[in-house]
């Protein structure tokens, strides 16, 4: 029954997406009249009108030529409008190819100096630490933190571009969600202390390893927990909860932060979305975190949901399959 409902939802969403011309035009970066779906609808309508005209003509003039003319008319319309559709698809394919080449080039050019910077700092701080005084170590740690932020920004932009072109690649590792959450908590300890936020991590039962891309799942958890920290005011609370249910693991991140305005909740997982209340309070942020998060979770065979009340708080929950799905 559940499977039937899911299938029905998938089909209706597919049909809705196909005929959501505004969204299609926005995604492809073209005018509404240039979208393949609009041109397809036009072709269908034109064929219907042509058939109706032929029907009325044949009704009044009983002649075999009418049938031939009607077929010729339909073929001409299909050729003209179909030509437009093919042309527009070609333009999109070309644009996609250019974008893909750009991603590849930008990825290499931007990431190479960042990797060099990160590794040099790591080498200095791990293998040459004894030759440095406290102040030097502190400055190097600040530089390291900034380089990691810059790297995160570049990764987010490239991941978003890869998602758009269907090129987001996920590795297959055994991911230790418990360890990842503890690591994120440790990395954010100073911020949690500074904001006097109480952070708790509850395991309802034993958290198993999941077959997923460790690095990407860390991005998912990091985005959700970082958002919770950023959008929770001083002396607030954040609860992370993990629970194994059948063949899935459910992770929830709950806060009592500023929440998301109800009229904007539909757009939360859209690219570049930032709530109006967050924009007013925080100038930083690209609005890519949740877009990337949703895509990673879904590509890993899971799903993500949230509930939020403005001024009260938010709760984001996602499910991941414990075993690797055959089709990814």
């Amino acid at each position: 029954m559940k499977l039937k409902i899911k299938l029905y939802q998938k089909i209706t969403r597919h049909i809705y997406d196909d005929f959501n011309l505004k969204k299609q035009a926005y995604n492809l970066g073209v005018e509404v009249w240039q979208t393949p779906s609009f041109l397809f609808i036009c072709m269908g309508l034109a064929i219907m009108v042509a058939m109706a005209v032929v029907y009325f003509v044949s009704f009044h003039y009983d002649s075999p030529f009418v049938l031939i003319i009607s077929e010729v008319l339909v073929v001409i319309i299909m050729l003209i409008v179909g030509g437009f559709i093919i042309k527009s698809v070609e333009i999109f394919a070309q644009a996609n190819k250019t974008k893909s080449e750009f991603i590849s080039l930008a990825s290499h050019q931007l990431k190479t100096p960042l990797a060099g910077l990160k590794w040099s700092l790591e080498f200095l701080l791990s293998k040459r630490r004894n030759g440095l005084n406290k102040e030097q170590i502190s400055i190097l740690k600040d530089i390291e933190e900034l380089s990691l932020k810059m790297e995160q920004l570049v990764s987010d932009l490239l991941d978003a571009a890869r998602i758009d072109s269907g090129e987001l690649f996920l590795n297959k590792d055994k991911a230790d969600l418990e360890g990842i959450i503890e690591e994120i908590e440790k990395n954010n300890l100073s911020l949690l202390k500074a904001k006097k936020i109480s952070f708790s991590f509850k395991r309802k039962n034993k958290v198993p390893l999941v077959m997923a891309d460790k690095k990407r799942i860390k991005v998912v958890l990091d985005n959700l927990i970082s958002n919770a920290i950023q959008y929770t005011s001083n002396e607030g609370m954040i609860n992370v909860e993990a629970e194994k249910k059948d063949d899935k693991i459910k992770i929830c991140v709950k806060d009592n932060g500023i929440g998301i305005p109800s009229d904007q909740q539909k757009r939360v997982f859209e690219k570049f979305f930032r709530g109006t209340n967050t924009e007013k309070l925080f100038s930083r942020g690209t609005g890519l975190g949740l877009y990337i998060t949703k895509n990673i979770v879904e590509k890993s065979g899971g799903e993500i949901q949230f509930k939020s009340i403005e001024g009260v708080g938010s709760e984001f929950c996602f499910w991941l399959p414990i075993e690797e799905k055959k089709k990814r």
Binding site: L114, L158, R162
Partner: peptide, 22 residues
């Protein structure tokens, strides 16, 4: 380089692991 094509090509050619530096 971290695209799916790059990784697939590397694995096909016999690399044991494919790591993205950054």
């Amino acid at each position: 380089l971290g695209s799916l094509n790059d990784v697939e090509k590397a694995v096909k050619l016999g690399a044991v692991t494919y790591l993205v530096k950054s």
